[in-house]
Amino acid sequence: MITDGELTALRLSIQSAALGTLLAFPIAGLLALILVRSRIKWKFLLDTLVSIPLVMPPIITGYSLLLLLGKNGPLGSIIDKTFGVEIIFTWVAAALAAGLIALPLMVRAIEVSLTEMDPRMELVARSLGASRWHAFWTITLPLCKKGIIAAILLGFARGLGEFGATLIVAGNIPGRTQTLPLAMFTELQSGNDYSVIRLVLLSLILTCSTLLIHHVLIRKRKTEAK
């Protein structure tokens, strides 16, 4: 049967993917807004930058995070000084890795629905007495709901599968940072075939149900629109 260690790996996977998605979402939203709406000159550079975690070996992403968050890293030292904690080799680091790897996917999903929306809708709202914020909350956000749902669920699903970057920045510490893919890797190396199969099944159930939820939600929105 499923061991406690495997269940912990499952919990850690969900935990880190969820936190990673949560942290990445506002950033993804902002990036998508800039990419679609703003008229800045060097937009294509930002566009390329956003895609980097998608195409680069995850090891590099993990290594960059390690440099950034390490005790002497620019961000790590600030966190260490103000909170007295170290993020490296904790599940939070795993969450950050998952979030960063999922970010490009989330940006693209939101970008698609922002592009589909007529930007004049906001102007209509403004002409109807809505402030910029009110127009954003009542018109832009609901019209991008599809993209937002897709971004969150696909980002979460991608985070669940994160391996390389997590290994570098969070390590492979059973019970603390060992997520499902890392546990699988460990069990595979020690030849624990049955454990591997159980972990694979757990992983499959988790990701498939996430994608299924996404499918159902999007379908529901389509029928509502009709």
Binding site: R126, G129, S131, I139, L143, K145
Partner: peptide
């Protein structure tokens, strides 16, 4: 004055109803 404070009604060329 921002558009929301001008108290003007505006009908756009292609109606632009809120689809949601």
């Amino acid at each position: 004055l921002p558009p929301e404070n001008r108290a003007l009604g505006y009908m756009f060329q292609d109606s632009l109803l809120f689809p949601h």
